[in-house]
């Protein structure tokens, strides 16, 4: 079994993280924005798993589980909000989220 260099796994996590960031910064659809945030969270979770495998500890995986539950809670509230937003604005475009400003 060839061992996988940990830096490369960490780089993969970083890569996914920044791709998620691109998504957050460039998408207009709120659902897709939320999805991109999920990518970032998943990437952060991956970083924990990688670190856990480096130290051969379960802690990294435990942290991933917590991130998972957090993502679930976040998504449930987020989607409920998006439903309301659609109900009010008839759109899920972030453009309609611009009533509060200076």
């Amino acid at each position: 079994m060839n061992t996988i260099p940990v830096e490369q796994s960490l780089l993969l996590a970083a890569m996914l993280f920044v791709i998620g960031l691109i998504g957050v910064l460039s998408r207009r659809n709120v659902i897709l924005m939320l999805m991109s945030v999920e990518i970032m969270l998943n990437a952060a979770g991956m970083a924990f798993v990688v670190a856990g495998s480096r130290w051969v500890q379960p802690d990294g995986q435990v942290m991933f589980i917590f991130i998972l539950s957090m993502a679930a809670a976040e998504v449930s509230v987020g989607l409920a909000l998006i439903l309301q937003m659609f109900h009010i604005n008839k759109s899920i475009d972030t453009k309609t989220l611009g009533k509060l400003h200076d």
Binding site: T3, I4, P5, V6, S9, S53, R54, V56, Q57
Partner: peptide, 10 residues
């Protein structure tokens, strides 16, 4: 510097 990855399975 490059670290050897571990083979251990948690």
């Amino acid at each position: 510097e490059s670290l050897p990855g571990s083979e251990a399975i948690v």
